[in-house]
Design a binder for these strands. Structure first.
Lengths: 231, 231
DNA sequence: GCTATTTTCAAACAAATGTTTTATTCGTTT
DNA sequence: AAACGAATAAAACATTTGTTTGAAAATAGC
């Protein structure tokens, strides 16, 4: 009869709590709000998750688990194994995970929840880093290392990795600012390829520049050359 | 006698509120906490700022005003006017504004306050965007345009600008993640030059790549070339 | 079909918090 | 010196909110 309740209460609460924690943050979200939206009783949260923080932990684990499961970060052996193709796939997968509605759905979905953990992590984020973030970073490091044919040390690889992830994260989560500056590059599901292509090419140039510039040289060289082309 | 009160109550509250709003967020920060830390009476906040939100608006305006005043974004006509030097200065100024203790002091200072407004802006952020962010972006756009000798359209300039600002923002605010991945690139006052140099070179290569790659080409070209150097 | 366990529900509790009120103090002006 | 307004102080008010409680209902196991 009640076909509006296909999921058991516990999972319904996790689902709804993801939205509400995302929209309002941990402190501002209220258990009453969540219970009401999940069509559950107020005490159900404390019953199933012990307390508000227990619910939050469950939401976070559920979010990352589903996001990385739907859009995995492992190298795809069926693809061309050229490292530049691998980088392109990596960036595309990241944007899909962030923006696709089957993933985290951008800042109107679970995005803000994740952004907050990036910038002001709670204790609940600790296991997430070990389980998901670190292996994810290792893949990227390995791709960048391949791109430099194994010649670059970690002192060059790591900042490049941060620059790449930083672009993806910023493009995704800074939507409110981007909307006022460059509407055509808004982080939406439709723009995933556009964004991924840009970040890919920009980063490819960046990695190349980092790998080719002379050490401890203080002045730019490549673009000076470019300028001198048209004096 | 009370030499511990060099500032009038109103400004003392703004100062302390900046720290506490930054550390805890708007909702979690309490007026009692702020009043106590500012050695002011509980009612002082409502008296001087009408309500909690009024105080928050004052804090935000004060933060951006001081940050941009201490580390301005205007082109410095005394510097070399080579666009690559301008880009370097722009990035350095941005990192100083973000990280320097005379600026926003990173995420242990006012950084988190600003990060939150970037990713989930409140109504109080509206005037800030018009007064500070938009002109700031225009400077960067003009520099990138100069870098491409006026040949690039906004469809190429804007995403490059976002990529550059994104790196700076991410490097600054993702400190908790960076700490677990690349400790030597932590966003601290001492690392400003290191970070600025990396973002500068990386972005210079990125801009160059965006400007030189053939339109609508789907496969990477530059790094393939690089690879073929060592077959 | 009955019992034991799990889950749901309504109500109440206790703590925290933004705001208001009223009185007092302090500095300036008349 | 008196008077006025601004600023400070202490207390109380009205909500909100996380959590607990005890009973009812539903479910599972035998």
């Amino acid at each position: 009869m009640p076909r509006k309740k296909p999921l058991p209460t516990k999972e319904r609460i996790i689902d709804v709590a993801g939205d509400i924690f995302g929209k309002n943050g941990f402190k501002a979200a209220t258990i009453r709000q969540i219970a009401t939206a999940a069509q559950a009783n107020l005490a159900a949260v404390n019953y199933h998750f012990r307390d508000k923080e227990g619910l939050y932990r469950a939401v976070l684990e559920d979010t990352f688990s589903k996001g990385f499961h739907r859009f995995p970060y492992r190298k795809n052996p069926e693809e061309s194994n050229a490292p530049d193709q691998q980088l392109h796939s990596f960036i595309r997968a990241m944007f899909h995970r962030f923006l696709n509605n089957e993933g985290w759905g951008g800042i109107s979905g679970r995005g803000k929840l994740i952004a907050r953990e990036f910038f002001e992590p709670t204790p609940a984020f600790e296991p997430i880093v070990d389980t998901y973030i670190k292996p994810h970073k290792e893949i990227l490091v390995s791709i960048i290392s391949d791109l430099s044919r194994g010649k670059a040390g970690m002192d060059k690889i790591l900042p490049c990795a941060i620059s790449i992830i930083g672009q993806c994260v910023y493009y995704t989560f800074a939507a409110p600012v981007i909307q006022r500056i460059a509407k055509e590059f808004l982080p939406t599901q439709e723009n995933i390829d556009l964004l991924a292509d840009h970040v890919f090419w920009f980063s490819l140039g960046g990695i190349q520049q980092i790998n080719t510039r002379p050490v401890d040289k203080k002045t730019p060289i490549v673009l000076n050359t470019l300028q001198e082309k048209h004096p």
